[in-house]
Design a protein around this nucleic acid. Structure first.
Length: 291
DNA sequence: AATGAGCGT
């Protein structure tokens, strides 16, 4: 709300006279009283009293009253202030070193990914050789099928026990073919005699379910940084910052897998929109990983 | 603006 409170007597000087040669109104400040600022008070009301010259050259007192936007922090932002420090800030005496003015010249150009054609061709031929050999040797350790798929591609691989567990249940048969059950029907490892059938410890599923995607990561945030930041909410299965394979630079996003989904929920609520390094994190559930 | 690796009988 701007109100012209009071017109004072007609000023004899004209705009042109008040301006210097460049048209700058440098002299105005001298001719007019300085503005007076009051508040904002408890209700956020701020008053400014200033003097101006209006279009007709009249000296005018202007009182401006407005409600000033109070600095409103999100509940999360307030709560974050009570967090214990992590990263560099956790180090003793770090406070004074965290923020500094750099005199370095900083270039923002990014080098393009390198990799020569010659190398690629070489790798290609190696892969072909491998496949020839692999075609003969490829026997899935989980289901015993030959020449069909690698162990890691086995449709039963998610049900396979952890390495070193119950693998002694059934030594490989003499002919080298692994683990067909009695009568020839396939018996998954976890159902074979002596195996723990509780389905709790033995079934090792790769848990990609509680996977969270973090984008807008700063260039120098790495796995341990994510682990530290997200680990505050609960145990993690995995932390991964996507790197450019050629340059090793961070691609600015990453993933975090929580053991418990609720912890993931909390992390998203608290960290989405959270400023980390110089950027505002974007945190949400990740889309399932493609094959 | 943006959705992840590698191991290899």
């Amino acid at each position: 709300m701007v109100a012209v409170m009071q017109k004072q007597q007609h000023h004899t000087e004209r705009w042109g006279d008040l301006l210097d040669d460049d048209g700058c109104d440098l002299d105005l400040g001298v001719l007019l009283p300085p503005p007076v600022v009051a508040g904002p008070d408890a209700k956020g009301i701020k008053k400014v009293i200033e003097y101006r010259i209006d279009a007709e050259g009249n000296k005018v007192k202007v009182t401006t009253t407005k409600r000033v936007r109070t600095v409103r922090r999100s509940k999360n932002a307030i709560e974050r202030r009570s967090w214990s420090k992590f990263g560099d800030a956790a180090k003793e005496d770090a406070e004074s070193r965290l923020t500094m003015v750099s005199t370095e010249e900083i270039l923002f150009d990014r080098t393009s990914a390198s990799g020569s054609k010659a190398e690629e061709t070489k790798v290609d031929s190696l892969v072909k050789t491998d496949e020839k050999v692999g075609g003969l040797l490829m026997v899935c350790r989980t289901c015993g099928k030959k020449g069909d798929h690698w162990t890691s591609k086995c449709p039963y691989k998610d049900l396979a026990p952890q390495q070193g567990e119950s693998s002694t249940d059934r030594p490989p048969s003499a002919d080298g073919s692994a683990t067909p059950g009695k009568g020839g029907a396939y018996v998954p490892v976890f159902r074979r005699s002596g195996a723990d059938r509780s389905g709790v410890d033995v079934m090792r599923r790769r848990n990609d379910e509680n996977s969270i995607r973090v984008t807008n990561l700063s260039e120098d945030a790495r796995d341990p940084d994510l682990a530290e930041l997200f680990g505050q909410f609960g145990p993690l299965n995995r932390v991964y910052v996507a790197l450019d394979r050629a340059t090793g630079e961070s691609r600015g996003f990453g993933f975090v897998n929580f053991v418990h989904r609720e912890d993931g929920e909390k992390a998203i609520k608290k960290l989405n929109g959270y400023g980390y390094d110089n950027l505002i994190l974007c945190v949400d559930w990740a889309a399932p990983r493609p094959n």
